Computed example of a mutant assay.
Amino acid sequence: MTSPANGRTVSMITSPLEAEHAERIASAFADRVDVTYRPDLMPALRYRGDHGDPAWRRTPEQEREWHELLRRAEILLDFPQNESIPLLELAPRLRWVQTTSAGVGPLVQRLGLQDSDLIVTTASGIHAQPLAEFVFAALLFHGKELGRLQADQRARQWNRFSGSELAGQTMAIIGPGRIGQQIGRIARAFHMRVVAMGRDNDPARARTLGMDRLFTRGELLTMLGEADCLVVCAPLTPETDGLLGAGEFAALKPGVVFINIGRGAIVDEDALLARLRRGDIAFAALDVFREEPLPPSSPLWDMPNVLINPHSASTVDTENGKIVDLFLRNLEHYLNGELALLSPQLDKRRMY
């Protein structure tokens, strides 16, 4: 699908993508854009929505060809993985990267791009619905005791019991962005009270975000004390790194449910483990971890009150279609010189 540049805009797909979506990109602006799509130089798709096996490597010959293609590219769909050479040296013509993830701030920092003129647009909001669905799958799994039902069914036992309902509970959200707001909307449909930690506690802003109340960072312990369930969906930034430690977990009421779909480094895992072992945190659903893949030696694997998701809560069969829709909208703005309309743009200093 690669064409000579001939003075035209060159866009390159740098992570695995289903062929039908690559065809959509290639045909959308065929009179103005040459699209490089070389699945033979990328890891094979393991499932729909896969963005690449991080353990996969090119041969030296493939690497030379890959780098030659990068040198021609003005636009990248996703950051290329496992590159030892700085990106702007590999791709000196590069002006814009559309990523396939929302939380790319730390990656941009690691790549040394925070002070560059490179435009980075993220997939912020694309994953809000599947992540919100995972949150409520976890809450209902715990509250309706679906694990008990499965165990009793396998044992052919008829044991009546009393579950819990979400209505009337308080959900606390750390990270009231696009994902947090979608979680809040669904929580309100379950007749839950929804509070969040934000930059300020302005009631008008709380209403705009769909929250019953906002708490500042200084009021975090107070918010945690009100929570029946705590959901972390914030990006990893200097402000959120290590945000939840022993003191914060101690502020939670007994029997709370904890869900992390943000980033693992936001949480002190040792402090979380201690509270889970004591039963102070009744149940935890974890999609992200400080070290990924989660090591087999981690005690989290064996805990009966923990649900482990291998950082896949956001990955659904419709994901790449939505990402390509976003990319094509942004590509039209780019081609028309409307760079200010590229959205959502990463603030490289704030890292989100």
Results as ranks from 00 to 15, higher is better:
61 E>T: 06
65 E>F: 10
126 I>N: 04
106 P>G: 03
99 T>W: 07
126 I>M: 06
131 L>V: 11
135 V>M: 06
107 L>F: 04
147 G>T: 03
86 P>E: 01
89 E>P: 05
134 F>Y: 15
78 D>Q: 02
127 H>N: 13
144 K>Q: 08
68 E>H: 13
118 L>N: 01
89 E>A: 11
71 R>K: 15
113 L>P: 07
116 S>E: 01
61 E>C: 00
147 G>Q: 04
104 V>L: 08
67 H>T: 12
119 I>Q: 08
77 L>G: 09
125 G>D: 09
84 S>T: 14
126 I>L: 11
65 E>V: 14
70 L>G: 11
124 S>Q: 07
71 R>H: 15
116 S>I: 06
123 A>K: 04
82 N>P: 12
87 L>I: 07
92 P>D: 08
135 V>H: 01
123 A>D: 04
78 D>A: 12
146 L>P: 03
111 L>S: 04
120 V>Q: 01
99 T>Y: 03
128 A>E: 08
66 W>F: 15
136 F>C: 13
130 P>N: 10
76 L>Q: 01
101 S>E: 08
123 A>H: 08
141 F>G: 04
120 V>M: 07
74 E>R: 13
68 E>L: 13
144 K>N: 06
117 D>T: 04
71 R>W: 12
126 I>G: 04
112 G>K: 03
120 V>K: 03
121 T>V: 12
132 A>Y: 02
139 L>K: 00
117 D>G: 13
82 N>R: 15
98 Q>R: 03
82 N>Q: 14
67 H>L: 14
84 S>N: 11
75 I>S: 10
142 H>Y: 14
93 R>L: 14
61 E>M: 00
76 L>H: 09
122 T>E: 03
114 Q>R: 09
108 V>M: 00
73 A>Q: 08
114 Q>E: 15
64 R>K: 11
79 F>H: 01
79 F>D: 01
64 R>E: 14
93 R>E: 11
68 E>N: 10
103 G>Q: 00
141 F>N: 14
90 L>N: 01
131 L>H: 01
79 F>L: 02
93 R>I: 13
109 Q>A: 13
67 H>N: 15
74 E>H: 15
101 S>P: 01
82 N>I: 12
96 W>N: 10
136 F>S: 10
60 P>Y: 00
119 I>C: 11
129 Q>L: 11
145 E>F: 09
58 R>C: 04
80 P>Y: 11
86 P>V: 07
74 E>G: 15
134 F>L: 11
136 F>N: 10
88 L>K: 06
94 L>F: 08
129 Q>K: 13
83 E>I: 14
88 L>Y: 00
119 I>P: 10
65 E>L: 14
138 A>M: 08
146 L>A: 00
128 A>Y: 08
85 I>W: 02
67 H>K: 13
59 T>R: 03
65 E>M: 12
118 L>T: 02
111 L>G: 03
98 Q>L: 07
115 D>A: 13
128 A>L: 07
67 H>A: 12
95 R>M: 12
67 H>V: 12
102 A>C: 00
82 N>H: 15
142 H>C: 09
127 H>Q: 12
86 P>H: 05
128 A>F: 05
141 F>H: 14
120 V>R: 04
73 A>P: 09
80 P>T: 10
119 I>D: 08
62 Q>I: 05
104 V>Y: 08
109 Q>I: 07
126 I>Y: 00
104 V>N: 04
65 E>G: 07
81 Q>W: 05
83 E>R: 14
122 T>V: 11
93 R>S: 12
72 R>T: 15
121 T>A: 15
106 P>V: 08
73 A>T: 08
139 L>D: 00
